[in-house]
Amino acid sequence: MVSLPNLPPDPQDDLGRYLGLDAESAAALAREQGWRTVRSLPPGTVVTMEYVAGRLNFEVDGGRVRRCWKG
């Protein structure tokens, strides 16, 4: 079995705080909280199941964050 690399932990953050924010403000706040990568996606975008430590994903509709998840 292959051992997993020692990944840095994700920031301790309340992901609910991003819901309803405009995409630019949400991305700036996420970076302030320590997220290394912030990705904004339109609704229905097909994404892979790979987990990337330190990445925060936003589903953005009408310029506002509607959904938020790690990885």
Rank of each mutant, 00 (worst) to 15 (best):
G20M: 10
T48N: 10
N6K: 14
D61M: 08
L41Y: 08
E59R: 01
A27Q: 08
L19S: 06
P8V: 08
A30T: 00
A28K: 15
C68M: 07
A28P: 06
A53C: 03
S3P: 10
V38W: 02
L15R: 07
T37N: 04
T48H: 09
E24A: 12
G20S: 10
D10F: 07
G62S: 04
L41N: 13
E32S: 14
V38R: 02
V2S: 12
A26M: 04
P5L: 15
G20D: 06
A23I: 09
S40H: 06
L56V: 13
E50M: 07
E50V: 09
A28R: 15
R64G: 08
P9E: 14
E50P: 01
F58H: 03
R31H: 12
L4R: 14
N6G: 12
P11V: 10
P43R: 11
L29Y: 09
P42E: 06
D14Q: 12
V52Y: 01
P9Y: 06
E24G: 05
V65A: 03
Y18V: 13
R64E: 14
D22C: 01
L21S: 05
K70P: 04
L4V: 13
D14F: 06
W35F: 08
Y18N: 13
V60C: 02
V2C: 06
K70Y: 02
T45S: 15
Q33C: 05
Q12F: 12
L29G: 07
G16C: 05
P43S: 10
A27F: 01
E24Q: 12
R66P: 03
E24C: 03
L7Q: 07
W35L: 06
A23V: 15
L41W: 09
D10L: 07
R17P: 00
Q33L: 14
R39E: 01
D22W: 00
L15K: 05
S25N: 09
N57T: 00
G54C: 02
L41K: 06
L7G: 04
C68Q: 10
A53I: 01
L4E: 14
G44Q: 10
G63V: 04
D22F: 00
L21R: 11
G44L: 10
Q12R: 15
R55A: 07
L56P: 11
V52E: 02
L7P: 01
S3Y: 10
E32C: 05
L7M: 07
L56T: 10
E59P: 01
Y51E: 13
P9S: 14
T45F: 07
R31K: 14
S25V: 05
Y51G: 11
M1H: 13
A53H: 11
L21I: 02
R66L: 09
Y51L: 15
A23P: 07
L15V: 06
L41C: 07
G16I: 05
P11Y: 11
E50A: 12
L19G: 05
W35K: 08
Y51D: 13
K70L: 07
E32Y: 05
R36V: 09
Q12C: 11
G34C: 12
D61K: 12
R67G: 04
R39D: 00
T37P: 00
N6R: 14
